[in-house]
Simulated scan of single mutants.
Amino acid sequence: MACLPAAPPALRRWLGLGLFVLLCLSLGYALEKKVVKSKVGEKVGLPCCHEIPSSQSLHNYRVYWQKNTTEVVLAYAEGKMISKHDRYENRTEMNTKNLTLWISPVEILDNGPYQCVVQHLTYLQNSVVVCDEPVTLFVTADFSKPNITAEVSADSCESTEMVVKCSSYGGFPKPKISGALNNASMVWNASWVSESSLSPYNVTGQLRLNVTKDVSITCSVEYNGFTKSTSLLLKKTNYCVVPTVPPSHNVITASSIIIIIFLLAITLAARYLPRHVCSHCCKPQDSVEEGVKECMKPPVSSKVTSETSSV
């Protein structure tokens, strides 16, 4: 008996990878079909894993819709409803062909896993389980638009210290709160309040900032694929005028000395430099000193000169 040649290692590796990808895609598709999302107040349909053929009727089946595998939402047997939970009264109905469970209006308490169990009745009144698969309902309640407040705790010329708070309420499920400061991501000190795991949440984020200039802050609340955001401009409240620096002691001393020297020079110049001699009151002399003395003599009047001449 001849042996077939073994596949090359590279080919085996590619075949294995292809099978793995197909398996992941098929699992992803199956999981996607089993997840349903809805908002509070809307109408939602949960698909069942079986559809009754057109040649048969609901009388040949038993159908049980249950939540958390313990709480029967409603049940049908031989074409009639035999049970319905009080909490779903007047809010649920089932399609008699594709067995889809319709819930309206949706409440937060409806959030969770459901299961559709279908049994087929034989002519001997024996029951055979046709399908038994879960489907998960994700319920969303919108949060309020985030509200940002800022309180100044300290102020100076250099910076303004602020306590910034962001709050949002009334939503479901438990949210994630994030933020940005001038488009740069930041982390809030967050706290959540809720009466139970199936009750609306209130969320608050707090942050201390030293604001040295006007900045924009953003608060975002993210929940079940939805986002609510708010932005606020934080302004630095105290802009101080920098005082003029007084001249140093050395500069004052040097300036004083220069002024004193200048005044002393002017005084000495006025006292010791020769005065200007008038041409009409002094005759030129051989020396400066004689010229000064001649100039200082009192002038002789013309009357005295005439009298002297007559004598």
Rank of each mutant, 00 (worst) to 15 (best):
S231T: 12
Y88V: 07
L17I: 12
P246G: 08
S54M: 06
V304N: 10
G171N: 02
F226M: 13
K283P: 14
D86W: 11
P134A: 04
D286C: 14
K80G: 10
C295E: 07
L273I: 14
V118Q: 03
L74C: 10
S54D: 14
I257E: 09
M94Q: 07
Y201S: 05
S256T: 15
L209I: 06
S144K: 08
Q125C: 10
A265E: 10
P113R: 00
C219A: 07
L4M: 09
E307R: 14
R271Y: 08
P243S: 06
P9S: 05
N202C: 04
A77S: 13
N238E: 03
N95L: 01
Q119M: 15
A154L: 08
I258L: 12
S178E: 06
D142P: 05
I108V: 15
E93W: 11
K235Y: 00
V242S: 11
T212S: 09
V311R: 15
L25W: 09
V288N: 13
G18Y: 03
T204W: 00
K228T: 10
V128K: 11
Q206N: 12
N224M: 04
A154P: 01
E71N: 13
S54I: 12
E289S: 13
R275L: 15
S229M: 11
H276A: 09
S55Q: 10
D214W: 00
N126E: 13
L234I: 05
V288D: 13
E289W: 10
G79W: 00
T92G: 03
C3V: 13
E133A: 13
F172Q: 01
Y88F: 14
S178H: 01
T237V: 09
L109E: 14
S55V: 07
K43Y: 01
P284W: 07
H59A: 12
S54H: 06
T218N: 09
V215F: 02
L121G: 01
A2H: 10
P113N: 03
L25V: 12
L11N: 09
E89F: 08
L25Q: 14
D286A: 15
M1P: 14
V21K: 01
G225R: 02
G16E: 15
W14K: 14
E161W: 00
V139F: 00
V130F: 01
V40D: 04
S310G: 04
L99Y: 00
L124N: 13
S168E: 02
V311Y: 07
I148P: 07
S55E: 10
T122C: 03
V118L: 05
L109R: 10
S55K: 09
T160N: 00
R91L: 05
V128C: 03
M81C: 09
N189K: 12
K228F: 06
L273K: 09
V72I: 14
P5W: 02
V139L: 05
C282E: 06
A270D: 11
N95Q: 05
S310A: 09
V72T: 15
S55F: 04
P299H: 11
K34R: 08
V163K: 14
I217L: 09
C157L: 03
L273E: 05
K84W: 00
E51Y: 02
P284Y: 12
N147Y: 07
I258W: 03
N224K: 02
T69N: 12
F262V: 08
N111L: 02
S57L: 04
N95A: 14
A265R: 06
G16N: 12
I261N: 10
A265H: 08
W192H: 15
G41Y: 01
I258P: 04
K236T: 05
Y76I: 05
V193P: 00
K297F: 05
V106L: 02
V164D: 06
C49H: 01
